[in-house]
Every structure is written in structure tokens, then in C-alpha cells.
Write a protein that binds this DNA or RNA. Structure first.
Lengths: 168, 168
DNA sequence: TTAAACTTTCAATTATTTCTGAAAGTTTAT
DNA sequence: ATAAACTTTCAGAAATAATTGAAAGTTTAA
């Protein structure tokens, strides 16, 4: 397979994975494009290569900056903004873990903890089933949260080294 | 907070989390409803409690069965089908991990491995950047895949015991 | 200043996903 | 057989999400 075809397939695959994970497809595609690009790209480049409008390109670049998955890069003698992606996969994984923890895990944990204090008689089976599920979930999600914290502090080799060692 | 209000909030929160993870909101809500229900519910119950149509209820129940997150339960002397959710959170986590691995990780891994064989001169920086990213990603996703395999075999206490011990 | 170069915004459009509900299909009891 | 009880299907409707593109906003150089 030639490079042009391979790039296309890579960008497409990453975009599909993105939507399956609740991430805007174009955002994932812009990220993919920058991931495999040896040099920084400007908005025009992205519009051209992905066939998207200026507004769309701008919006998704901004969002990728929010996630800190990409950075602006200034090219001397040029007024345009150029963008480069963080290339270290472990660093990317940490950024995504950190953001999803903040946006998803933490708010849910907060709600679950609030729901532990539902009033009612524990001999009522409705109440019992509810509190049991909420307690179990809150306990589980709490452990997930702590596990992500650990991963955020860890070094890649040590992390996978330890995890994969368990399998034996 | 009273039970009715708490239930509503729980179902709503779970539904929102579902959409953030690329899962149909109603499917997540049906799951939530069954998770906190002490007894099996029939399609009518779900239509009523979630205010959804028969078609919608049926479709999402079927999909939850596909995931094996819920099971049919027969009530003697009744022709209707009743549904119960798996309540063990660790088992639920394993089911979700297993399904997402199958639907998302494995296909991506396959594509990435295919893309390793892109033809072209490694002294071309475009080719070099592409193969480097693809190789790093493929390596990383491969480790993720193996980690999920391990989790699928593991016992909850041992798993979190080991993971959380690392944090110290 | 000011005008060119560039970025951001946002109302309107388009695309995608989800939902409805009635009809068709299936099963069971008699 | 057949009719009642129940489940599934699916074309069209509704809801949601993403995209466009032109106008407004901002920055820079001279």
C-alpha cells in the first residue's frame, strides 16, 4: 500500500474509533492527521487535506488545544498559526485519561455519593436494592478513579511491566 | 432525598454517562432502571417508567441482551417476558470490557498492523513519521488489548488489590 | 492609521442518530 | 383451527449533533 492510501485509511480508522468513544469524528481526524505529519500544519492545510470548512477546522483545533493534545507552533516569518500534535503515545494516553476522569468519572462519583443518602426504610426492598446498587457502583467507580490517578503518576514501562506481568 | 427522586437522578446520570461513552442513552437508562430494580420488569414496565415507545424499549432490551448485561426471566403463569440485570458490578465491568475489546480494540489493531507495511523509502520524512506513529500506536494498543485480557481473567479483589497497591 | 492577513463566531443548513407506532409476525391456550 | 397475548420490524418523524461560510473580530506591518 502506498503512503497516500495508508494515510487515508489511518485517518478514517481513527475517526471511526473517535465516534465510538463519544468524540467528534472530525476532531479525531484532525488529531490523526497531525499525529502522522512530520511538520506543523496550518488551518488551510487541514481544510484541504480533510475537506472541511474553515469554521469546522478552527473549532476542532481549538478543542484539541483544550485537551492539550496539540500545540501552536510559530513559524518565523509567517503570521499564520501552525499546529503540532504531541507524539508520545503514553503522554497522549495520560492526557485522555486525565480529561475523561475530570469530565466523566468525577461528576458521576459525586452524584453517586449524593445518592447514598436516600431516605427510606431498609426493609423496603425497593430502597434496599437501590442503596445496594448505588453503594457497589460508588465503590467500584471510586476504585477506577484511584486507578487512573495511579496511571497518571506512573511511568509507561513500569505500568505495563507490572500489569502484563500479572498475566503470567 | 426520597426514593422516587433518587431513582430519577440515577437513571438520568447513567444515561448521560452512556452517551459520553458512545452508548445509546435509552439503552443506558433501561440498564440503570433494571440495575436498581429488585424484581424483573416487563416491556410495559419499562415503557411506562422511562416514557418510551414499545419499539424503542424492545430494541434496547434486545441490545442489552446482546451485550449479556440483562437476561430474560420467565414468571410462571405469565406469558410476558421479564428482564433482570446482572447485578455484580465486577461482572458488568468485565462484560463491557470484553465487548468493547471485541468491537473496538481488535478491529483497530488489525488495521494498524496492516498499515505497518506501507511501502516507501524510510529516508522520506513523510514515510518515516507515518510508520513511527503507526508502530508506536500498534504497540500501545496491543498492550491495552493484553491488559484487558488479563482483567477478564482476574478476580476483582486481586485486580484492584494489585493496582491500588502500586499507588503507595 | 489603515489595510492586509489571519482567526473566531454563529445563524442557517445538512447529516446522523434515535424514536415512534402501527402493522406484521409469532407463540400459546383452548 | 383460531383468537388472544405478546414480540418484532421498519418507514417515516423527531431530536440531536455537526458543518458551512460569510461576516465580524483581531493582530500585525508599514
Amino acid at each position: 500500500m502506498n503512503l497516500t492510501e495508508a494515510k487515508k485509511q489511518f485517518i478514517q480508522t481513527w475517526g471511526t474509533l473517535g465516534s465510538e468513544w463519544g468524540i467528534n469524528r472530525t476532531m479525531a481526524q484532525v488529531h490523526a492527521l497531525l499525529l502522522i505529519s512530520p511538520n506543523a500544519l496550518c488551518t488551510e492545510d487541514i481544510m484541504e487535506q480533510l475537506n472541511v470548512s474553515r469554521g469546522n477546522a478552527n473549532m476542532n483545533l481549538r478543542e484539541l488545544m483544550n485537551w492539550t493534545l496539540i500545540n501552536k507552533e510559530l513559524v518565523p516569518g509567517d503570521r499564520k498559526e501552525y499546529f503540532v500534535a504531541e507524539k508520545d503515545i503514553w503522554e497522549i494516553a495520560r492526557i485522555i485519561a486525565r480529561e475523561r476522569k475530570r469530565r466523566e468519572i468525577e461528576p458521576v462519583l459525586k452524584v453517586l455519593n449524593g445518592l447514598k443518602e436516600v431516605e427510606g426504610d431498609q426493609s423496603d426492598k425497593e430502597v434496599k436494592a437501590f442503596t445496594e446498587t448505588v453503594n457497589n457502583l460508588s465503590n467500584f467507580v471510586g476504585k477506577m478513579d484511584k486507578s487512573v490517578d495511579m496511571m497518571l503518576k506512573a511511568d509507561e514501562n513500569w505500568f505495563f511491566g507490572t500489569i502484563l506481568k500479572m498475566i503470567k
